[in-house]
C-alpha cells in the first residue's frame, strides 16, 4: 500500500476532482448530455485563475472568475446546441477546439504559467492550518460548499424543472418551461464548476498548462460512475455525494496504481479502461436490480405490467 503522504496527496487532489465530477454529473446525468466542453473549460479555469494569481489578484477572487469563465464556455456550447441545433457532442467538441486558442490568449501566448512565486489559496491555507492537512481541509470546505449550494439549488422550483429536463424534455415543455433554456443554464453551471475545479487545480499544483485538459471529461465521468456503483444513487443528496466520493476514490486508485509501478504515461489508457468497465458494471448493476426486484415481488410485478 502507498505511503500516508501519497494517500494525503490523493485525497487533496480528490477534493478538487470531486468538483469536476459534480460538473460532469450535471451535464451527463442531470441533462443526459455528454459534454466535451469540459476538456476545454477546465483549462480556461486554470488559465484565468493562474493569470490573475500571477498578477497579484486575490486568489479566491480568481477562483470566482475561473467559475465565470468556465460558465461562459458552457454557455457557448449551449448556444451552439440549442440555437444553432448542432448535436450536443459536436457542439462540445467545437468549443473544446476553439477554447485551446482562447486559453492560449488568456495565458498571454505562453503554454505554461508557473505560480511558484505567487500567492495561492493553498499557500494561504498553509499559513493558518497544519501544513500537512491544510490542502485537504481547504478542499473539503470548498467541496462541501459546492455540494450544499448545488443541493439547495436542485430543490428549488427552477432546480426541479432542470432535473426533469434530462428525464423528459417533452414534459418540461408541457409544464410551460423552455427545455432549451434549461440546457443553457445547466451547461453554464456544469462548466462553471469545471472551471472552478481548474482554478483550484492550477493553484494546487502551482502552475497552469495549456495541454492539461485532455481526458478531463473522461476522468469526471469515471468518477461519477465509480461513485454511483460504489456509493449508490438512492436520493439526490446521495447522488451528489457519490459523485464527489467517486472522484476521491478514483484518485486513490490512480495513485495506488502509480505506486505499484504503473507508468504515468499510461494514465489516460487506464482512465479510459476504468470508464468502460464502470459503464459496463453500471449496466450490470441495473440488470441485477431488475432481477432482484422481479424475484422480490413476483406476483406484484406480474399484475403491474
Amino acid at each position: 500500500m502507498m505511503t500516508l503522504t501519497a494517500l494525503l496527496g490523493a485525497l487533496e487532489l480528490g477534493t478538487i476532482y470531486a468538483i469536476l465530477a459534480l460538473g460532469v454529473f450535471l451535464s451527463f446525468r442531470t441533462l443526459n448530455m455528454p459534454d466535451l466542453t469540459v476538456d476545454g473549460s477546465i483549462v480556461t479555469g486554470m488559465a484565468v485563475s493562474a493569470v490573475m494569481c500571477a498578477t497579484g489578484v486575490n486568489p479566491f477572487i480568481s477562483l470566482l472568475c475561473a467559475f465565470a469563465a468556465g460558465s461562459a464556455a458552457g454557455l457557448v456550447t449551449g448556444i451552439l446546441h440549442t440555437r444553432l441545433k448542432i448535436q450536443a457532442i459536436l457542439a462540445g467538441i467545437l468549443v473544446m477546439l476553439a477554447s485551446y486558442s482562447v486559453n492560449l490568449r488568456i495565458m498571454g501566448k505562453t503554454p505554461n504559467i508557473p505560480l511558484t512565486k505567487s500567492e495561492t489559496v493553498y499557500k494561504m491555507a498553509d499559513r493558518i492550518l497544519p501544513p500537512k492537512y491544510s490542502g485537504i481541509i481547504l478542499g473539503v470546505i470548498v467541496l462541501a460548499a459546492v455540494i450544499a449550494v448545488l443541493y439547495l439549488f436542485l430543490q428549488t422550483r427552477i432546480g426541479f424543472v432542470f432535473r426533469a429536463t434530462g428525464d423528459n424534455e417533452d414534459m418540461v415543455r408541457a409544464a410551460g418551461v423552455s427545455g432549451e433554456n434549461m440546457k443553457l443554464l445547466g451547461l453554464a453551471l456544469s462548466n462553471g464548476l469545471v472551471g472552478l475545479a481548474g482554478g483550484m487545480l492550477a493553484q494546487n499544483q502551482a502552475f497552469a498548462d495549456i495541454s492539461s485538459g485532455t481526458g478531463m471529461m473522461v476522468i469526471g465521468l469515471a468518477s461519477v460512475i465509480l461513485g454511483e456503483v460504489v456509493f449508490g444513487t438512492s436520493t439526490l443528496l446521495r447522488r451528489l455525494i457519490s459523485a464527489a466520493l467517486g472522484a476521491v476514490l478514483y484518485r486513490i486508485i490512480i495513485s495506488q496504481a502509480l505506486y505499484l509501478g504503473m507508468e504515468s504515461s499510461d494514465l489516460k489508457l487506464v482512465s479510459a479502461v476504468i470508464v468502460a468497465a464502470a459503464l459496463y458494471l453500471g449496466l450490470l448493476g441495473e440488470r441485477g436490480a431488475k432481477i432482484r426486484r422481479k424475484r422480490g415481488q413476483n406476483g406484484k410485478a406480474a399484475s403491474n405490467t
Partner: peptide, 18 residues
C-alpha cells in the same frame, strides 16, 4: 416532485423551494 413541476405551471419559477 412531478406534481410540483406541473403545479408551478404559469407561476414564476425562481429559487423558491420546489
Amino acid at each position: 416532485e412531478n406534481l410540483a413541476i406541473a403545479a408551478a405551471k404559469g407561476k414564476c419559477r425562481g429559487l423558491q423551494p420546489g
